[in-house]
C-alpha cells in the first residue's frame, strides 16, 4: 500500500451502526461535521460546478473565477468534469454523490460524515467506489467517517 493509501486509512473510518437512533445521535454529537446525505440535496437550479463554487464564494468571499478554478480542480481530481455544467435532475447517482461530496469538502472541513452511502449509491459497489474517491481527494479533508448499518459490514470486507 502506498503513502496515500496509508494516509487514507488513518483518516477514513467506517462507523457501523445498530440503528437509526444511534445514527441520529452520532450526527447530533458532531455539529462541526459536514454531512453528505440523501436528505441534503444539491441546489436544483445550479449546475454541479456552481453548487461547489457557491460555497467558496459565500463563505470566503472568493472571486467567481478563482472559485470556479478550485471547483474545477476538484472535479478533475475525481474524473467527473463531464457533469460540471449539468443540474441535479440530469445527474447519475454517482455524479450526484460526487457533487455532494465535493461541495462538502471544498473548504477542507475537520470532519466529513457520509451518511448511509447505500441510499445515495444504490447501483454501485459503494465501499470500493468510496475508497477510490477518497483516495483521489487525499489531503482535502481531515477525517471522513462513513456511517453505515451493521448488516452492511460484509460489504466493506470484500476485495472487489
Amino acid at each position: 500500500m502506498g503513502d496515500a493509501g496509508e494516509n487514507l486509512l488513518a483518516r477514513k473510518r467506517v462507523v457501523l451502526l445498530a440503528g437509526d437512533a444511534q445514527r441520529r445521535q452520532l450526527i447530533d454529537e458532531h455539529p462541526e461535521a459536514v454531512l453528505v446525505s440523501e436528505s441534503l440535496p444539491l441546489r436544483a437550479n445550479l449546475s454541479v460546478l456552481e453548487n461547489i463554487t457557491v460555497v467558496l464564494q459565500f463563505r470566503t468571499n472568493t472571486y467567481i473565477g478563482e472559485a470556479n478554478d478550485s471547483a474545477w480542480t476538484l472535479l478533475s481530481k475525481v474524473g467527473h468534469t463531464a457533469c460540471a455544467e449539468r443540474r441535479d435532475p440530469d445527474l447519475s447517482y454517482e455524479e450526484r454523490f460526487v457533487a455532494k461530496l465535493l461541495r462538502a469538502i471544498v473548504l477542507a472541513p475537520p470532519l466529513v460524515l457520509i451518511d448511509r452511502p447505500a441510499q445515495m449509491l444504490p447501483d454501485t459497489n459503494y465501499p470500493y467506489f468510496l475508497n477510490k474517491l477518497l483516495l483521489a481527494l487525499e489531503g482535502r479533508f481531515e477525517k471522513c467517517w462513513i456511517l453505515d448499518y451493521e448488516w452492511n459490514a460484509p460489504l466493506y470486507n470484500s476485495r472487489a
Binding site: V34, P41, R43, A44
Partner: peptide, 16 residues
C-alpha cells in the same frame, strides 16, 4: 420547492 425538497436545510448544513 426548495422548502419541500429540503434544499434550504442542506444549504444551512454546509454553512450557507
Amino acid at each position: 420547492l426548495m422548502k419541500i425538497q429540503n434544499e434550504l436545510d442542506a444549504m444551512q448544513r454546509i454553512g450557507i
